[in-house]
Simulated scan of single mutants.
Amino acid sequence: MSGRDYNGEPGCHSPEELQRNFRHFWDPTAYWKCGKADQPAQLQHCPANELFYDREQRCVKWKDWQWTEPQDPPTRPRK
């Protein structure tokens, strides 16, 4: 996956990834959640009229959301 094609999905290989959610790089209403180590991340969606705010690690109303620079997770999926 090259930088422009990468959607932010974590590899779920590190303990840190199991403790937080990761923004979807292309869809601000979606985020990635690791369930178990070395299992694929699950794509989650915020409720209607909310966006995932990575600074707060949760969905917020669109008026409370601010764009932030995407940050790569510690690992990527093994494809």
Score class of each variant (00 low, 15 high):
1 M>V: 12
2 S>F: 07
3 G>M: 06
4 R>Q: 08
4 R>F: 09
4 R>W: 07
5 D>I: 03
6 Y>W: 10
6 Y>A: 05
6 Y>H: 10
6 Y>M: 08
7 N>L: 08
8 G>D: 01
9 E>Y: 00
11 G>Y: 06
11 G>C: 06
12 C>E: 05
12 C>F: 02
13 H>R: 14
14 S>W: 03
15 P>Q: 08
16 E>F: 10
17 E>Y: 05
17 E>G: 01
18 L>I: 08
18 L>E: 07
19 Q>C: 04
19 Q>S: 12
19 Q>P: 00
19 Q>E: 15
20 R>C: 00
20 R>S: 11
22 F>L: 04
22 F>T: 00
23 R>Q: 14
24 H>L: 04
26 W>A: 09
26 W>I: 01
27 D>T: 10
27 D>L: 06
30 A>V: 00
30 A>Q: 15
31 Y>N: 00
34 C>N: 02
34 C>G: 06
35 G>H: 11
35 G>F: 07
36 K>R: 14
38 D>M: 11
38 D>K: 11
40 P>I: 07
41 A>T: 07
41 A>I: 05
41 A>S: 14
41 A>N: 10
42 Q>I: 15
42 Q>C: 01
43 L>V: 12
44 Q>A: 05
45 H>F: 15
46 C>Y: 07
48 A>Q: 15
48 A>M: 13
50 E>Q: 15
52 F>G: 03
53 Y>T: 04
53 Y>R: 05
53 Y>C: 06
54 D>H: 04
54 D>K: 09
54 D>E: 15
55 R>Q: 14
55 R>N: 08
56 E>H: 06
56 E>K: 14
57 Q>I: 06
57 Q>P: 01
58 R>M: 11
59 C>P: 04
59 C>G: 05
60 V>F: 09
61 K>T: 10
62 W>Q: 13
62 W>L: 09
63 K>M: 04
64 D>F: 06
64 D>Y: 08
64 D>W: 03
66 Q>R: 15
68 T>S: 12
68 T>K: 13
68 T>C: 01
69 E>T: 12
70 P>L: 09
71 Q>W: 03
72 D>T: 04
72 D>E: 14
73 P>Y: 11
74 P>R: 02
74 P>H: 05
75 T>C: 09
76 R>W: 03
77 P>G: 07
78 R>E: 14
